[in-house]
Design a protein around this nucleic acid. Structure first.
Length: 305
RNA sequence: GGGGGAAUACCAGAGUGGCCAAAUGGGGCAGACUGUAAAUCUGCUGACGUACGUCUUCGGUGGUUCGAAUCCAUCUUCCCCCA
């Protein structure tokens, strides 16, 4: 029988962690996170990592396993998650993935094409060029390297343009020629469960959760990470705003309001991303029993209490 | 009691006779995104319509004018100064 993977997705604050832990306990399964920021150590509060009690209930992976200074990418995630899952499948025959990083979930479920890894130095150079000379030179370069992708890229987006050039330069081939657009077949079965709720309710929950983070010590966590603010890991809602506050650019009150606002916007982007995935089975936040029932059916296992 | 200033779309705020459904910013909404993705980027944002467009707006009312957010009168509200 092929291993089975339950994937829990949804915007921040929708209750993915709680549902994952609930299912983990019911089915006796381990949980693998799919979150680009929870992989880092020292960011427990701001990234809403599972609480110690939750971590104690179920075996968790890919949480707080990287140093703040590390680079971590969707490609790394794909490799690492697959590797971990192989071990978990051998022991349990199934596992749960929960997280809000849509690209990471895609990487895990459908795979990414074999593209060259990031080249920090090259990137730095290209970014500098974009900053000082504007987009024109890089766009010209990309047009020469890969006319096909050039026609399709978002030319206003430096990330997209620079990555494309990076891939072309490092691989010696046009980026577009390396993009298969097809998904890799995986040797496990997947069930995707999404959590939704009315917008107003979600936003209220997000605001409330930020307040809870503040009570839990988000500010001092951010203060402890201030020195590392330049790292990618800290280009993260909840920290950036506090860094600006520590720098005296904004008041604490403004920082808190911005954290809430940026969290809401982040949630919106997540919803936009997940809405494209037609394989997700959506459940309202209160329908945990229904979601668990679907998972049980998928696992072909009785619901043990 | 006297004098002065201001009222513009969700908010802030330009505009001071036609090029104004009204700059710009914020907010909101919608979206894009295959190795930075909690990142990065884009569009829309008076109403109706896919669209050419049509209709209703710039505190209220009434005027002047071919034409008013813009000028005049008056009313209302707010702010400041003198008493």
């Amino acid at each position: 029988m092929r291993p089975k993977l339950i994937i829990i997705a949804g915007p921040t604050g929708s209750g993915k962690t709680a549902l994952a832990v609930l299912m983990a306990r019911r089915f006796g399964l381990p949980v693998v996170s799919a979150d680009s920021r929870q992989v880092f150590r020292g960011m427990a509060i701001g990234t809403a990592q599972p609480a110690p009690e939750e971590l104690a209930v179920a075996e968790h992976h890919l949480i707080a396993c990287r140093d703040i200074a590390d680079d971590y990418t969707a490609g790394d995630y794909e490799r690492e998650a697959l590797d971990i899952l192989a071990g978990l499948f051998a022991r349990h025959g199934a596992a749960i993935v929960a997280g809000g990083s849509g690209l990471y979930i895609n990487a895990l479920c459908e795979g990414m094409d074999a593209l060259p890894d990031a080249d920090p130095e090259l990137r730095l150079r290209l970014e500098e060029k974009w900053r000082s000379e504007g987009p024109a030179p890089l766009l010209t370069q990309l047009q020469a390297l890969d006319p096909e992708y050039y026609a399709a890229v978002d030319r206003a987006n430096p990330r997209r343009v620079i990555r494309a050039i990076e891939v072309c330069l490092k691989s010696g081939k046009p980026f577009s020629s390396l993009r298969s657009g097809s998904s890799r077949s995986r040797d496990f079965e997947m069930l995707k469960i999404g959590i939704t709720m009315p917008r107003a309710e979600l936003y209220a929950r997000i605001d409330g959760r930020v307040d809870a983070m503040l009570r839990d010590g988000l500010e001092s966590e951010a203060r402890a990470l201030y020195l590392y603010r330049g790292f990618n890991s800290l280009q993260t809602v909840g920290y950036r705003e506090f860094f600006d506050c520590f720098d005296g650019k904004i008041s604490r009150e403004t920082a808190v309001a911005l954290i809430k606002q940026n969290s809401r916007r982040y949630a919106k982007r997540q919803m936009t991303w997940f809405s494209k995935d037609k394989t997700i089975n959506w459940f309202a936040a209160g329908e945990t029993d229904e979601a668990i029932a679907m998972a049980a059916k998928f696992l072909a296992a009785p619901i043990a209490e």
